[in-house]
């Protein structure tokens, strides 16, 4: 598939597609971080995760509309406000869902899968009723438009770069929260031994709710990032859920570094192959490779060596 290209052309194709893949990478990482927390730490399969992402995207869309109508002088800053609002909205909904639904199902992981699938259907139809079936897009502020030329053949879109920096920051933040903060330590304690964690005075129910809300909140931020690379529709989230689950499983659940590495591999493979093959074949080949590797190495790429 490489014939007909010179070496220099190939280099720039790989570089360009690599940078184009960074936006996909960012969405994958943010979605997968949330899922990895929820699935890896709590063992809950959240099939509605894509809908939490879309909630964040709709919040971003509403914020952008609000700023362009009422605060047009501050429009260039709307994205930061939108991100915070998206996090809060998704996290609140997540906490509510945990309280109503998930906490009754902790011992039945396959049932959480079915119940959250039902939730995703309800949310999709809710978005369709509120926002309409048509896809909406946001206007980017000027400083996010355009691209930055490295050489005359390689151009990097500014918004992709921005989203990626944001992703790295959030990933580091999540890592710090899980490793250093009191709540993060409590969460890991509950995962390792629920009964003992309860015995030393950790409120396990509160920790569960916090963990689930955090995962959903990060999905909300993923939604903000998503508005930059795609248009938002009621069912847009469903398209990403399978890929994201593969990212999480491929990276080895409960390992945040593995999640980032596997999101990078999958998004780059897909983006690079898309240039040479049709989009659908690129996706088929990527997913097949991942499934194939998972069959050979079911524990994922990176695993913690622990005795259970």
């Amino acid at each position: 598939m490489f014939q007909g290209y010179t070496a220099a052309e190939l280099t720039s194709i790989f570089a360009m597609q690599g940078f184009a893949g960074l936006s996909l990478f960012s969405v994958f990482v943010l979605m997968a971080l949330g899922l990895a927390i929820i699935f890896g730490q709590m063992g809950v399969i959240n099939m509605a995760h894509g809908e939490f992402m879309i909630l964040g995207a709709y919040v971003t869309y509403l914020t952008s509309n609000f700023f362009s109508e009422h605060l047009s002088s501050m429009f260039s800053l709307y994205f930061f406000v939108a991100m915070i609002l998206a996090f809060i909205a998704a996290a609140l909904l997540g906490a509510l869902v945990e309280w109503v639904l998930i906490r009754h199902l902790y011992r039945r992981p396959l049932d959480t899968l079915l119940a959250t699938w039902g939730l995703s259907l309800i949310l999709q139809q809710g978005y369709r009723t509120i926002f309409g079936a048509r896809e909406v897009g946001v206007t980017l502020p000027d400083w996010l438009m355009g691209s930055y030329a490295i050489t005359d053949m390689i151009e990097v879109p500014v918004n992709g770069l921005f989203v990626m920096c944001l992703t790295i920051l959030i990933t580091i933040g999540v890592y710090l929260v899980m490793q250093k903060s009191r709540l993060g330590k409590q969460t890991r304690a509950v995962v390792q031994n629920r009964a003992m964690a309860g015995a030393v005075g950790i409120n396990t129910e509160k920790v569960d709710r916090f963990t689930f809300a955090l995962g959903c909140g990060i999905a909300g931020i993923a939604g903000s990032a998503f508005t930059m690379i795609g248009s938002t529709g009621p069912t847009a989230g469903q398209l990403y859920i399978v890929d994201t689950f593969l990212v999480v499983v491929f990276g080895g659940a409960s390992n945040l570094l593995g999640t980032v590495a596997s999101a990078f591999t999958i998004s780059q493979a897909q983006s690079t192959m898309e240039f040479f093959l049709s989009g659908s074949m690129a996706k088929v080949l990527t997913l097949l490779t991942v499934v194939g590797i998972l069959m050979l190495r079911p524990q994922g790429l990176f695993t913690l060596k622990i005795r259970s």
Partner: peptide
Amino acid sequence: GALFIGVV
């Protein structure tokens, strides 16, 4: 959706 949740 309600059916999924209700059954489970």
